[in-house]
Amino acid sequence: MERVIAAADAFGVSLKLTPYRLLYETDWGFESEPEEARRLDALNANALTTEQLEAWYVRLGFVRSGQFDGPGDNATPVLHRMPRTTTLQA
């Protein structure tokens, strides 16, 4: 993400995102691969929550835009980051 931010800054591009918790689906197709199902369950157990993801992006300079994405009570804030002024070197 730091490289994406650096590139956005270098080209004067603002970034906009909506942090969602990402979880792996483990309810299908793993009957013959129990080790893989256990591995994915462990990844899910350690996944950051949406709130933790938002806090991580805030530390990178993102702020709430005032917009929300998603239905009703499940809406997630849209985050925005304006480019920092940098000078490209040839």
Rank of each mutant, 00 (worst) to 15 (best):
K16Y: 08
T18G: 03
T18P: 00
P19F: 02
P19G: 02
Y20N: 10
L22I: 11
L22M: 09
L23K: 03
L23E: 11
L23C: 03
Y24F: 13
E25D: 09
E25S: 04
T26W: 00
D27G: 14
W28P: 05
W28N: 13
F30R: 03
E31S: 09
E31D: 14
E31H: 05
E31Q: 11
S32H: 11
E33R: 10
E33Q: 10
P34A: 03
P34F: 02
P34D: 04
E35C: 01
A37W: 07
R39Q: 13
L40E: 06
D41P: 05
D41E: 15
A42Y: 01
N44G: 03
N44Y: 01
N44Q: 03
N44E: 03
N46T: 15
N46G: 11
N46Q: 15
N46V: 08
A47Q: 02
A47T: 05
L48W: 14
T50I: 08
T50G: 13
E51V: 12
E51A: 14
E51L: 09
L53W: 00
L53V: 00
E54F: 03
E54A: 12
A55M: 02
A55K: 09
A55P: 01
W56R: 13
Y57L: 07
V58Q: 07
R59K: 15
L60I: 05
G61Q: 03
F62C: 05
F62M: 08
V63Y: 07
V63A: 12
V63N: 09
V63I: 13
V63F: 07
R64C: 04
S65R: 01
G66K: 06
G66C: 06
G66M: 04
Q67W: 13
F68A: 11
F68T: 15
F68G: 05
F68P: 00
D69A: 11
D69Y: 13
G70Q: 08
G70R: 09
P71K: 11
P71M: 08
D73Q: 07
N74L: 09
A75L: 05
A75F: 04
A75M: 06
T76V: 15
T76A: 10
T76C: 11
T76P: 04
P77C: 08
P77N: 07
V78T: 07
L79K: 12
L79P: 10
L79H: 12
H80Q: 11
H80F: 13
M82F: 04
M82I: 03
M82C: 02
P83V: 10
T85C: 06
T85I: 12
T85K: 12
T85S: 12
T86P: 02
T86N: 02
T87L: 06
